[in-house]
Design a binder for these strands. Structure first.
Lengths: 95, 95
DNA sequence: GTAAAGAAGTTTATTTTATAAACCAAATTA
DNA sequence: TAATTTGGTTTATAAAATAAACTTCTTTAC
């Protein structure tokens, strides 16, 4: 009846991050922060979780002299998102 | 960009309960328990929360000699669900 | 008739999660 | 050179989900 929802994606902020990355293929920390409205601390934590699960990849580099964290969706992350959307349908199709 | 998700509905079990009630208009506690696979304790707590928010109405009656808890969706709950689905789209439409 | 088991929940305790506050290092600006 | 800003991370707190334990009444078995 109701399919289980991946707890890693069933979180407002993490879902926003993944959604953003699927749309953009690459995004920097400050941009994600601005688009999601998250605090830096919360964003840092949630990015770590997504990264630890292999849903996104995180590259820490430098932009001139400033640190720069770039995030990208992985194929694992994309698949997880697609599965999540599919599972959600079991809750949203209420006919 | 990303619309906020009603925290009351953005919960796997509560979403399942509301989804079920929208589809059925009325359901008894044991049936909801069976359909969602939730434990009785968890279900009791989440039903209380939805009831306190006015998303569902709960009628405690008797079926013969046994207690019987019947739940129904309210118009507030239906509206909240529709808003939630609408907000979710901002995360799911990733073109 | 009474003891054990089952049904229908509720209450309470525990674990997990989300979130923000505090912090750090380097760079820029005043 | 002192203060502020940028780009984060770490840690502490608040909130949430969840299950375990408990309650009350009812059957069923002996």
């Amino acid at each position: 009846m109701f399919k289980p929802l991946d707890p890693l994606l069933h979180s407002e902020l993490r879902l926003a991050i993944v959604s953003l990355l699927i749309g953009a293929e690459e995004a920097e920390f400050p941009y994600i922060k601005e688009q999601t409205g998250a605090t830096a601390g919360n964003l840092s934590v949630q990015i770590d979780k997504l990264s630890a699960a292999g849903y996104i990849e995180v590259e820490k580099t430098f932009k001139g002299k400033k640190p720069c964290t770039v995030c990208r969706i992985t194929s694992t992350g994309l698949k997880a998102f697609e599965d999540y959307v599919e599972a959600l349908k079991s809750y949203l199709d209420v006919k």
